[in-house]
Design a protein around this nucleic acid. Structure first.
Lengths: 105, 105
DNA sequence: GACTTATATAACTCGTGGCTAATATAGAAG
DNA sequence: CTTCTATATTAGCCACGAGTTATATAAGTC
């Protein structure tokens, strides 16, 4: 899944809230609905989007479906972001170098 | 600016392409247009969105406007992502611990 | 099988966002 | 002040996405 997809899926407050809940522990849909101030179909729809983006996965438990977090897309996003991270660490390095120079001269 | 805003703004291929170009060096609008296979108004509109999200900033140079990257929102995004990063580093730690245990027993 | 609970899907409405073409602004040059 | 160049804004169109209500599916209970 592309990082653009992951970004788009993450850029929704309801879905962020779902991920925040699943970050603590896996949960059935009903428990998510109870915590989310949104209709059950709405939550199910978000779960579908998250599932298709690989950000969550579900297993059946009787008539319930238990959802849990999948970290892979977040790791990919982290990798993408790291190409920018080098820019601000470089900036810090420059600052340190500058301070070093001032100290030694 | 909220991370949700940053995520939404980043979740567009055209804007990602703009940031990729600005990652190398600052550039005037015309140079971006020349590299972007999109109309000038389209690029200007994306630049506005990026500007309002704090991801780029512009300075005048005669009749041109030179755009450059701003890292702050990306750093915020990185900080947000780091709350999840601990989850997969934890996973790695567990793996290591498991391997250690196998080695010592 | 009839009924209940848990979850998913469908149908619909409504706002947002991206694209383009046309126009406006603003500085540079003559 | 007219003209040219660089960039921004506006207006209109179309697609997408989020929310809701109603309905379907599927498992559990009696």
């Amino acid at each position: 899944m592309s990082t653009a997809t992951t970004l788009h899926v993450l850029a929704d407050p309801s879905r962020q809230a779902i991920l925040d809940l699943l970050r603590e522990r896996e949960r059935p849909v009903g428990e998510l609905v109870a915590n989310l101030d949104q209709s059950q179909p709405g939550v199910s729809r978000h779960l579908r989007v998250l599932r298709e983006a690989g950000l969550v996965e579900a297993t059946r438990d009787g008539q319930r479906r238990v959802y849990r977090l999948r970290l892979e897309p977040l790791e990919e996003l982290d990798a993408w972001l790291s190409t920018y991270r080098s820019l601000w660490t470089a900036r810090l390095d420059q600052l340190e170098a500058h301070l070093d120079e001032r100290r030694t001269t």
